[in-house]
Structures are given as C-alpha cells and as structure tokens.
C-alpha cells in the first residue's frame, strides 16, 4: 500500500502546480534534497548537509530545536488566545475567566500557552548551558553566542510581559515587584519605569503596553533574531563538533563558509 501511496505522491509532485510552489522539484537524489533546503526561504537558513554524529540525541539534546518548537506552540496558541482577549482592565481578567468557563477548550489553550512559556524559558537556559559546556561558543561562533544572549533576554521579556496579561493578583504583583527593580536604576530609574508602565504604577496603560510588546514587538524581534541565529549556524560551519572526536579542522573550524 505504501508503495501505491508514494506513487501517487510522486505523481503529485510532478504536476505543474506543485512545481510552481516548490522550486526544488521532487526526487530523492542528493541534488534534489539539497535543493529542497536551498530553494526554500525558510529552510535555506539551514545547512544542506549535517555531520552524522550531530543528529544523535547525546550531542545537543535537541535543546535549540525544542526551544524553537515551544516558540511555535506559543505563537499558535497565542494567536488563538488573542481572539478572546481585550487588553483593558478589568475586562482582561473577565476574558481570562471566560476562557476557562465558556470558550471551547479555552482553558486548554491557556494552559498550553502558559506551560509552553515556562518550558521555553527553561529550555533557553538549558540550551545556553549545554552550548557553553560543549564549548560551542568559541570562534568562529562568538557572535552567534551573543545573538543567543539577546534571544535569552527576549525570551525573558516575552514571558515577563505575558505574565501581566491575565490581570490577576499574581500577574499584577509580579509585575509590580519587577518594575520596582527598574526604578532602582541610578538617575533614570523612575523614568525607565514610567516609560515601561505608561504611568507611575501598574495600571491599564501598563497592560496595554505589555500587550503590544508581548503580541507584536517582542515576537517580531525574536523571529528576526531566531532567523539570524539559525543562519549563523550554517555560516559558522554548522553545528559545533569537538575537535578531539576526530573532527576535521578544515571542515569545522575554519570559519570558511560552507555552501
């Protein structure tokens, strides 16, 4: 049966419509497989070839991939949650309650978004330490490490801004505690805090600001940096491999662009 299915699939990939969408064409030759990566705007950020030992779980624990995965889940559930949410006080809280009580699977959506957000923060930290202990931050990957630090900060900010949105006591006071730290910055502290909250304390303005940051500014910034992050993996010579594990110096650490 599987043979028949793949025959139909092959026939499909030969059609004009398919060819117009996927520039790489079909086929299972090395060329076609390379083209599948190269000719796709998203996938071309990745290398067409990967060292075989890099795909084993032990090497990277797939932490970067998983982090991207949580980001994807968060974008999807986030968009769905936005359909039911008004960023105004105290309506925001009522909307959160209604998610729980009347929206079909609303509670599930919120749970998934919340737990994925926590998972993402955790995974980002784990990814960072894993990369460090593997030594994968060394030249020529220094700058990608720095982008990683930026992504860490963006992740924390995304999580922090999202924390306020349910507008419950937990959210309100967590943000109050956090924003009070901002006012400790010498000289400009209070101004920074005012800018952050749109007022002198956490109120409806802060909610709107955090909403805009959480749903638009920060995700776009994160996407932007994620793209660079992935592209730089390819440009910096693919996933880092230990030298002593019989790695080829010329192959991995030359800093020479590959493909």
């Amino acid at each position: 049966m599987s043979v028949r299915v793949s025959k139909y699939f092959d026939a499909l990939t030969e059609t004009r419509a398919w060819r117009s969408v996927f520039r790489g064409g079909s086929g299972s030759s090395t060329l076609h497989r390379s083209m599948a990566i190269q000719q796709n705007i998203f996938l071309h950020l990745l290398s067409t070839k990967v060292r075989k030992r890099m795909i084993s779980l032990n090497t990277t624990w797939y932490l970067g991939t998983l982090t991207l995965g949580t980001f994807g889940i968060l974008v999807i559930t986030g968009i769905l949650l936005m359909l039911y949410y008004h960023p105004s006080a105290p309506q925001a809280y009522a909307d959160t309650k209604d998610l729980q009580f009347v929206v079909s699977s609303g509670q599930f959506l919120r749970n998934l978004h919340r737990w994925s957000a926590h998972a993402m923060v955790f995974l980002v930290f784990a990814h960072m330490f894993r990369v460090f202990y593997r030594g994968a931050y060394r030249a020529p990957r220094e700058f990608n490490w720095v982008i990683g630090v930026v992504l860490l900060l963006l992740t924390l900010l995304l999580s922090y801004t999202g924390y306020l949105l349910p507008w419950d006591q937990l959210a309100y006071w967590a943000i109050t505690v956090g924003s009070n730290i901002a006012s400790a910055v010498p000289v400009v502290g209070d101004r920074v805090r005012f800018l952050m909250l749109g007022g002198h304390f956490v109120n409806a303005n802060a909610l709107l600001r955090f909403y805009v940051l959480h749903c638009m500014v920060l995700p776009i910034a994160a996407l932007f940096f994620v793209a660079i992050h992935f592209w730089r993996i390819r440009k910096d010579g693919g996933l880092y491999a230990h030298q002593k594990d019989a790695a080829s110096v010329s192959n991995c650490d030359s800093g020479r662009p590959q493909l």
């Binding site: 006080a89 105290p90 809280y93 959160t96 309650k97 729980q100 509670q107 599930f108 919120r110 749970n111 998934l112 978004h113 919340r114 737990w115 926590h118 923060v121 930290f125 924390l156 999580s159 922090y160 924390y163 349910p166 507008w167 419950d168 006591q169 937990l170 959210a171 309100y172 006071w173 967590a174 109050t176 505690v177 956090g178 304390f201 956490v202 109120n203």
Partner: peptide, 28 residues
C-alpha cells in the same frame, strides 16, 4: 501537562491588597 494541570489564576488585580509575599515570575 495542559490537559491535567490548570494554569494558575488568582483573584482580580487589586492595587490595594498586596499579597504576602508578592513574588515575581519564577525565573526572576
């Protein structure tokens, strides 16, 4: 996890009632 554990939600934000302790998100 999402099917079995509900995301925490407390009472409506109330500037006049400070919970004790007021905690930031866990990573902070």
């Amino acid at each position: 996890i999402s099917l079995f554990f509900n995301a925490p939600l407390e009472g409506l934000a109330d500037p006049s009632h400070t919970p004790n302790p007021a905690k930031a998100p866990w990573y902070f």
